[in-house]
Simulated assay, not measured.
Amino acid sequence: MNALGMIAKVTTLLLCLSVSQWSWGVGEVEENPSALAMTTDALIVRPVMIATTIVGSALWLVSAPFSLMGGNADQAADTLIVGPAESAFKRCLGCIGDGYKRGNMTE
Rank of each mutant, 00 (worst) to 15 (best):
V45E: 14
E28A: 03
L59T: 03
A76G: 06
R46N: 13
V45S: 03
A88D: 00
M49H: 14
W24V: 02
M38C: 09
I44H: 03
I96V: 12
L4R: 13
S34E: 07
L36G: 03
T79V: 02
S20M: 11
G56P: 05
G97V: 03
F66H: 04
L61R: 12
L61V: 03
A3T: 06
V26W: 15
S20Q: 12
T79G: 11
A51S: 01
L80E: 04
D74R: 07
A76I: 02
D74F: 11
D98M: 13
Q21F: 02
C92K: 06
F66S: 05
I96F: 15
T53F: 08
A42Q: 09
M69D: 05
I7P: 09
L93K: 13
T52W: 01
E28F: 00
S20C: 12
C92M: 07
E30N: 13
C16P: 02
R46K: 15
N2F: 09
I96A: 14
D41F: 00
G25H: 02
L14F: 10
T53E: 04
L17T: 06
L80Y: 04
T79R: 07
G97D: 09
S57C: 05
D41N: 15
I54T: 08
V19L: 10
R91W: 01
S34Q: 05
A73E: 04
M1W: 07
V55P: 05
N2T: 08
E31T: 05
L80Q: 02
M1A: 08
A37V: 00
V10F: 14
M38I: 08
Y100M: 12
P33A: 02
E31C: 07
W24Y: 11
A76D: 15
G56H: 01
R46W: 06
R91N: 11
D98R: 15
W22A: 14
C95T: 09
R46Q: 14
V55A: 15
A37S: 13
V48T: 12
V29W: 06
